[in-house]
Structure formats: structure tokens, C-alpha cells
Amino acid sequence: MSTLHTVNKSPFERSNLQACLGHAQNGDSVLLIEDAVFAAIAGNTFAPKLADAAQDIKLFVLGPDLKARGMDPAKVVDGVNIIDYEGFVDLAAASSTIHSWL
């Protein structure tokens, strides 16, 4: 079974996302929540790393956190799926372990 990794900080402030991507296994899911959602917007300098990761890892971003911060869902990096809290719960239930990178 796979792991759901959650990350809640911008990669411009903390190394959580970098650390998470460095440890996630093929087939795992990574969900960006809270201040990590900024990483998912195309054009930021971290976005190419996400696009790279999307080849082996399933990437998600929490829609309500995007919306709260005025981030345009249309500008989310290709390969990153927008989900709501229901989708978050589904991901958590479908993964055997949840690793919150703090």
C-alpha cells in the first residue's frame, strides 16, 4: 500500500516539501495544504520540481486553501489535481499510512 504525504508550508519558507519529495516512493500521493499551495501555481521557481515529481508521485492540492489565498485554479501546474476536503479524506482512506511533513 502507499503513503499519503501532506505538506503545509511554502517551499520558499521551509524545506518540508523538498524533504517530502526526497522520501516519497513511486505511487505515493502528496497533498499540498495550507501555505504549501503556493508551490502548485505555475511560474514559481519550485514548479519544475513538482512537475518532475509528478512522473512518479500523484500530486494534489487542496482547493479551499488555494481559493482562500487568491490562487487561480486554472494556473495550477500540470499533473497536480485539485481536491476538496472530501477528496482529502478519500486519499487518506485509500493510503495505508499518512505522513504529515512538519
Binding site: 503545509n8 476536503y85 472530501e86
Partner: peptide
């Protein structure tokens, strides 16, 4: 839940997650 209310979003996120889980029958 590792953080207090208001300083961090953690408690809000945990609450939204819990509510969504219950709404889905978990």
C-alpha cells in the same frame, strides 16, 4: 493536533478533515 487555535491553521484543517470524514460515514 499539534498547534493551538488562531496562531496556526492546523486546528482548522484538522476540524475540516474530521467533519468531512464524518460526513462521508467514517
Amino acid at each position: 493536533v499539534n498547534e493551538g487555535p488562531y496562531n496556526h491553521q492546523a486546528s482548522d484543517s484538522a476540524y475540516r478533515f474530521a467533519k468531512a470524514a464524518i460526513d462521508k460515514g467514517h
